[in-house]
Amino acid sequence: MASTETKADAADQPVKDSTGGDMAGLEAGLDALETTAHSGRPGFRQTFVEKILPPLVAIALVLVVWQALISFKVVTDPSKLPSPSDVWGEVKNAWLEGTLLGYIWTSVSRGLVGFLFALVIGTPLGLLVARVKFVRAAIGPILSGLQSLPSVAWVPPAVIWLGLNNSMMFAVILLGAVPSIANGLVSGVDQVPPLFLRAGRTMGATGLRGTWHIVMPAALPGYLAGLKQGWAFSWRSLMAAEIIASSPDLGIGLGQLLENGRTASSMSMVFLAIFLILFVGIAIDLLIFSPLERWVLRSRGLLVKS
């Protein structure tokens, strides 16, 4: 092995030959050339024009059409379609009476607590289904089947088992949201590139360490999509439960408000409730899930700026 001596000599002193220096310069040049320059965040003006203006225009259009239906006497019966100003009056009244935030908070607090429970149950369940073959074969199909079962179907049995109380609401939320969260995690885990698992294994990340350091972070985008859907299902289930199972002890949430509007034949109250339900759903998505999702995708270079 003639080359061994050369190697041993060279290891003692830093490699400083003309070729090496040459290559280092070449390398620095390549690095500089191939590093993409990053454009900064778009200004407020651009964000306003591209992101905020379009939905405002859409809302304005709906209001114009709505008002036109009333003004041009297409719909004359206010018990069928109240005017925008009637509904606005309802909002103002509820605000002045101090009940508006109460309605919203009753439902939102229930929804969020139920969602957190669903998160705590759905996450380990999803991991088990994704990672343990027997569990997947046993309950995987049931779990995805449950997603297509409307959660309203759970309201009658939940009332019979638990009575008219908050636990019954939480039970319905759980049954609606847990399958979504678990399924989201399962598909997230299934989409983890096998290369990451192999790389992790050669580094010693196996078993629980592999799950924690490799599988969970790699599955995060799918998991987040599951959480987003899980929240939508939580909110829908809760509204179904509140509409069907109203009781004076439960306090008035948005579902009860809708039901109260129906029994009082007050179409403007019904509209108010529907708008608030929609508003909360959109607000939670825009304030929590969308930023979270965008942050995860952007940090991984998966978000293409259009």
């Binding site: 790389a199 580094m203 010693g204 990340a205 790699a218 991984r300």
Partner: peptide
Amino acid sequence: ALMFQEHALFPWLTAGKNIELALRLR
């Protein structure tokens, strides 16, 4: 240690944290 044709770096970590993960697992 094994190096692949694809870099197999974890995109949820920075370059430095990728190296630190290997150190941590060791």
